[in-house]
Each structure stands twice: as structure tokens, then as C-alpha cells.
Simulated assay, not measured.
Amino acid sequence: MKFHTRRPIALAAIILTASAALTACGSDDDGGDSGSSGGDGGGSLSMTMLPKNLGNPYFDTSTAGAKEAADDLGAELEEVGPETASPDAQVSYINTVAQQGKDALILSANDPEALCDAIDEARSADVKVVTFDADTNPECRDLFVNQATAEGIASKQLELISEQIGGEGEIAILSAAANATNQNAWIDMMEKELADNPDYADIELVDTVYGDDDDQKSFDQTEALLQNHPDLKGIISPTTVGIAAAARYLSDSSSKGKVALTGLGTPNQMREYVENGTVESFALWNPSDLGALATYAAAALANGDISGEEGDSFEAGDLGEFTVDADGVVLLGEPFTFNADNIGDFDF
């Protein structure tokens, strides 16, 4: 996969061949007033970015990338969102986008089904809808910008935990919300691979718990896992909030160095825990690139450069050219593993 150095906050890494559900940004031109999608000086597009929740370092980074892409396009982009990651909390923001007549909505969905009615209203108002980071059902949106495949992300996390526990022992999963589309897809794939792959025959998944992408709850769930499973050898946390909270707990506990931790995190969150030996390695794509790609995809839709059909292609600035795959999916790239040897090279 490619590394991109154009943004100071992310020189980048994309993880795995993975695809969980994750990306979105859409835009429409209100029937004939096509904004300027290439930064060539016409009228500007107006886009809204709606992450799962505000105050999350992962989404802070994806929004920063989206804003840089919007600047490159000469478009307007605002970020809105709830403090807590729930589908009900996102509905009012989607309704507002429709009422304001925005060209595009870039959305990380807190539920694959619960937002569809609101999204339908927005699309009826000529708003292009692109999901990113976590998808809705394909029928509900125009495009999904995916960082990687569910199979790829699942395989990467199992590969890392297996290496760290010597291929045997009890493991647990600390996820985000119980209804998080992307988390559940990855967990399903991990469960299947654990059952079917002989390389993991001596690894047992003993528990899956949910921290709701809340720092304190994820911290408490880590403590509970260790109390409930005294023989636990490793934890996988496929969420940036969860892995950081788990690392914070482990770093000050007697389990440091005894219970392995991996999953999906950002270098800036995890650097201290890698450097102090709490975490050996973890993975992630570049969320800044993910937000940027969703923004370029939304602009291409809004300007009529693509319709979202399989085989459509569009330019995404320094990221290069991308093609729409089946079911309206655009794939960002491949995986990257962060460890003590390379984590100092990244800043996001």
C-alpha cells in the first residue's frame, strides 16, 4: 500500500486488506448548480461531516483530513455530531443537513438500519450521502468509503494477538457499542477464523465485552475482563477508544507484560504504551486519508463526475485515482502495523 506524506497530521498507514464498514461523504448539486469539484474556481460545494461522536481522536483526525481535501476542492465543510455514539443522536443532524440543502453528507453510521429513514429524507432533498468508517445498508447511501475489508481487519488482529501470546491461550475482545456495524463485522470474521484456521486451534475466545467507545467504561471493562478471566493471555480491542483505555489500565496493573493487547489505535494515542512495553504492536489505516477520500468521493458525486456505479473512477488529490467497486464501495488501501521500531515516524 501507499504512504502519503502530504498531511502533517498523518503520514500514513492504511491497514490491512480490510473492509469493515466505514466511510462516507456525499454531495449533490441541487439539480443543475454543480459546484466546483476540482478546485478550478466555480461555485463551492457545501458538505457536512457527521462522525459517530465528537471528541474522539480517531474522528478528529479523519475530519482534519476531510477539511484539507475540502480546501483543495474549494468546498465548504463543517463537522457536527453528538457527544455520545448512538444512532438516535445522529438523526437530528441528518435532518438538519436535509433542511439546509447541503450538497453532501459524510457519515460514520452508528447503526446500519436505524439511520436509513433520515438518510432517505436527505437524499430526497438532493443530498449525496457517503458513509465512511461504518456503513449503513448499501441501499441507504450513495457510496461507502471503506478503509479495508472485514476479513482483512479481522485477520490482522488475530495475526498480531497470536504472535504476542505464542499461538495459544485465552483471549477476549473489548469492542465499541454492541450495535456498531464495523465492530460486529470484524468480530464475526474473527470468530469464524478462530474456528476454521488450524493456526489458531490453541486460542480460545472466552469473552466479548462492550465499552461503547467511552473511555471510562472501556477502562472498567478491561478491569472486569482480567478479574473474570484470571488465565487471560490477550485482549483485542478493535476501537481506538477501547484500545487506549485498555492500555492505560494495563500499564498500571500487575498484568502489564503478562496480558497482551492489540487492536486498532492511532500512533499518538498508543505511543506511550508501546514505548513503556504495555503494547507490542497494533494496526490502523490512516484516518486522515480516509476522511479525505470520502470528501473527494462526495465532491465527485455532487458534481456529477460519477454516479456511484461499479466501475466509476475519480481523482482524489494526492491520494491518486480510485474506482467504485460492487455495492458502491470505494476501498482506501491495505494494512499497516505499528510497533516500537516505527511508531516514532507517525503523527496522527
Rank of each mutant, 00 (worst) to 15 (best):
T239S: 15
Q221W: 10
H229M: 03
S46A: 14
A122H: 01
I235F: 04
E139N: 08
L194G: 03
E68H: 09
A260H: 02
N110G: 10
A13H: 09
H4N: 15
Q227G: 09
L143P: 00
T48V: 15
D318A: 14
I14L: 13
H229R: 02
D199H: 03
W285R: 02
A260P: 02
L205T: 07
E272C: 11
N276M: 14
E168Q: 14
I343L: 09
V274F: 11
A245E: 07
T239I: 11
T337Y: 00
E193D: 08
G308M: 01
G38E: 09
K67T: 11
E163D: 13
K67I: 12
G344A: 12
D199M: 05
L232R: 01
L319F: 08
F219H: 14
Q221M: 14
A154D: 00
A85S: 15
V259Y: 01
G277W: 12
D215M: 13
L22W: 09
L261I: 10
W285F: 11
F132C: 12
G26P: 02
A69V: 06
I243C: 08
A89I: 08
G265P: 02
T266Q: 11
K217V: 13
A224Q: 14
F219C: 13
E193Q: 14
E321A: 10
L77K: 00
A224T: 15
T5S: 15
V274I: 15
P198Q: 08
D142T: 08
E163L: 02
Q157N: 13
G38C: 07
K256C: 09
G74F: 03
M47S: 07
A283C: 13
A118W: 03
A300W: 00
E334N: 10
A98Q: 03
